[in-house]
Amino acid sequence: MDEIESGEDVVAAFRAARLAAEEHMIAMDDAGSTWHETTITGIVLQHAHPTVKFVDFSQRQEGTTGADWLWWWVDESGEAFGMLVQAKRLKVGSRWTIDFSYPDGTSAQRDKLFASARELGVPPVYGLYLGTQAYRAPVTCGRADHDDSDCLACRMATVSLLPAILATVGGGMNSDNDAIWAVEHAIPFETLVDPAEQPDCAYDRNLALVDGELRDLLLANQHGARHVAKALFERVSSVRAMQFSAASELMIEGDSEQLFDRYPSDRGHLGVAYFEHILRGLRTAAPAYVLDVLADQSVPPSVADLVEGVVVVQL
């Protein structure tokens, strides 16, 4: 493998990628034109390289729907976390919208994302392109140190991630509330591996049911692949904590490739057993095709036929 990057190096690479995406968005907005998910994805990957290594399998025609990219975060211990990311952009007009059900107004696209993620053994995630700080004004980060002219927290939100199971919790498919809910619960991309950003899962509704390494994941500071997994899990856990449905005490089994072999079966109002749904992407070792990407070897059709490309981040 190539030299492992430090967390700070990865944060810097993602920041450079976000700044480049912002520059393109500003140029297109100034020209009275539209920026698209496919273009922004290309810019992000281009400017995060070589810290981020990627391979694409097809060149799809530019459009309004982002393709699915399979991301793997691999750390020095050999552990890895995978997620299937579909790009979506925020549209600002008389109301805010993100086309989670695009293009046919049904859940067909979302169902396909979830099915592909399940087949690949990773959680489905939306990569949200939320536009510039000016594009989203007057909505802000709400922090006490917010600066209307140039706020780092608002600017970092330009490229964010959202666990897909949270996309329509705010109001339901095609609800006016979904876009606002998504923006509020998304994770700025460049904070995902920032050592200074430690997710807090101590309030999880099912904490009493877990022990060993899984309990340690929730309660102790993490780094590498576990940190990325925990960051996504925390967003889902925080939403479950606000729901009043009773938690189940039943446990479900993981598979042999997953880091954990038992998870709480609790779904709340999320529709899936959220522990397994997110943490199935956390593995004791990266799949063989991830090593193929790092070695510039071809990826098997069983993966290449499901996604636009594979991205590997060494932590």
Rank of each mutant, 00 (worst) to 15 (best):
Leu207Asp: 09
His24Arg: 01
Ser238Cys: 07
Val44Thr: 05
His146Trp: 04
Trp73Glu: 15
Glu8Leu: 14
Glu213Val: 00
Ala164Gln: 07
Val74Leu: 12
Thr106Glu: 11
Glu253Thr: 01
Asp296Leu: 11
Ser77Ile: 05
Gln86Ile: 04
Ile40Val: 07
Leu294Asn: 09
Met25Thr: 15
Ala179Glu: 12
Ile180Val: 13
Val183Leu: 12
Leu315Asp: 10
Glu234Ile: 00
Asp9Leu: 05
Gln109Cys: 14
Arg15Glu: 13
Ala225Tyr: 00
Ala196Phe: 09
Val10Phe: 07
Ala117Ile: 00
Ser175Leu: 10
Leu166Tyr: 04
Ala27Glu: 04
Lys230Gly: 04
Met1Gly: 06
Leu162Arg: 08
Ala157Gly: 13
Leu192Met: 11
Glu234Asn: 08
Ser298Glu: 15
Arg95Leu: 14
Leu294Ala: 03
Glu3Cys: 12
Val122Arg: 03
Ile98Ala: 02
Ala286Gln: 03
Arg143Met: 14
Asp104Pro: 12
Gly271Asp: 05
Trp73Asn: 15
Asn206Val: 05
Met173Trp: 14
Gln243Ile: 12
Ala186Leu: 07
Val210Ser: 09
Asn174Glu: 13
Met156Ala: 08
Ile98Phe: 07
Ser94Tyr: 06
Asp204Ser: 06
Ser160Arg: 14
Ala12Val: 12
Thr51Cys: 11
Asp261Ala: 06
Glu119Arg: 10
Val290Leu: 03
Asp216Lys: 10
Ile252Arg: 02
Phe233Ala: 00
Leu90Lys: 02
Ala246Gly: 07
Pro123Cys: 09
Asp68Trp: 09
Val169Ile: 08
Ser6Gln: 09
Val290Asp: 10
Lys91Gly: 04
Leu192His: 06
Ala246Thr: 05
Ala13Tyr: 02
Val290Pro: 01
Thr284Asn: 13
Leu113Phe: 08
Ala285Ser: 08
Leu219Asn: 10
Gln46Leu: 14
Gln46Pro: 10
Gly268Val: 07
Ala288Gln: 05
His47Gly: 04
Thr65Met: 07
Leu306Arg: 11
Met83Phe: 10
Ala13Cys: 10
Leu219Arg: 04
Leu217Pro: 02
Trp72Asp: 10
Ile4His: 13
Trp35Arg: 06
Met173Val: 10
Gly281Lys: 00
Thr65Val: 09
Val303Tyr: 01
Ala134Ser: 11
Asp111Tyr: 10
Asp194Phe: 14
Leu214Ser: 04
Val272Ile: 15
Leu113Thr: 05
Val299Gly: 06
Ile180Ala: 07
Leu279Gln: 05
Ser6Val: 05
Asp111Lys: 13
Asp111Thr: 15
Glu5Trp: 15
Val10Asn: 07
Glu23Leu: 04
Pro300Ala: 08
Leu162His: 06
Ala21Gln: 01
Ala231His: 08
Thr97Asp: 02
Ser58Gly: 12
Gly281Cys: 01
Ser101Asn: 15
Asp30Phe: 00
Gln86Cys: 09
Arg215Asn: 04
Asp261Arg: 00
Arg95Ser: 15
Tyr263Lys: 02
Asp176Glu: 14
Lys91Gln: 15
Arg15Ala: 14
Gln59Asp: 03
Tyr289Cys: 03
Leu279Ala: 04
Ser256Met: 05
